[in-house]
Design a protein around this nucleic acid. Structure first.
Length: 223
DNA sequence: TACCAGGAGAAAA
DNA sequence: TTTTCTCATGGT
């Protein structure tokens, strides 16, 4: 596992950010009505296309289960059935229930929002089924904390632009962004959303480049 | 039919 | 400690 430092300059990351922003314009993220829905979506999107997540969330909404107390009261089998379109529904039902129990113990997302990041992030990572990317999605988009979300698209883009090799561990990449950039929640959200949007647009109906994940012949590539 | 998609945890090496 | 396997649906 690669452990050496990823220490990009602020200018290199800001330059990439500005190019993505020019290409795609401001993104409206995260697509959810409430912080709780953000947290649910963060679990459901694990290794899953967002369109499948939307189906599952729509079913939860129809069932009136998009709030903490109702979801906690649902039998596991019923919850799994509701989120079936998101895939991995048995595992994700357990993960959602673990997350809901955690939120109940902590007094809900509103109470969590009062905790310092130094204890909040480890607490989230202590929930079974909540890994670093899912925790950081929740911190950034549901709890307004300046943490940078690292996903597969971020790795590919960093590698493509020679800012990283792409196989660095999650914490190395996250800390690299957070050290180089000011702790700006709105900008971190926009940056991550732009990376995902860029990858989706560039790769649509085109073969992926094995290095960066973007299409070799895509006219919208940011380089 | 085969592959991929906004991971995470357990098991095996 | 690192790598591999498992979980699963819907779109292309």
């Amino acid at each position: 596992m690669a452990t050496e430092a990823f220490r990009p300059t602020a200018e290199s990351l800001l330059s990439l950010y500005r190019r993505l922003l020019r290409l795609h314009g401001p993104q409206q993220w995260w697509p959810a009505d409430t912080p709780f829905e953000v947290a649910v979506g963060a679990v459901l999107t694990q290794n899953t296309n967002w369109s499948n997540v939307e189906r599952a969330i729509a079913r939860l909404r129809e069932a009136g289960a998009l709030d903490l107390q109702t979801m906690l009261a649902l039998p596991r089998a019923r919850l799994a059935e509701l989120i079936r379109p998101s895939g991995y529904f048995n595992i994700k039902a357990d993960r959602l229930r673990e997350l809901c129990r955690f939120l109940r113990r902590e007094g809900g997302l509103e109470a969590l929002a009062e905790r310092p990041l130094e204890t909040l992030r480890p607490a989230l990572l202590g929930v079974r089924g909540i890994g670093p990317e899912t925790a950081d999605d929740i911190l950034l988009y549901a709890l307004d904390r300046p943490v940078f979300v690292i996903d597969v698209y971020t790795r590919r883009l960093l590698a493509r632009h020679r800012l990283a090799r792409g196989d660095e561990d999650y914490e190395t990449l996250r800390r690299g962004f957070e050290r180089a950039l000011p702790p700006d929640v709105a900008m971190f959200r926009q940056y991550h959303a732009l990376i995902v949007e860029h990858a989706k647009q560039a790769c649509r109906k085109r073969p992926l480049c094995e290095q960066c994940g973007l299409a070799r012949d895509c006219p919208r590539r940011a380089d």
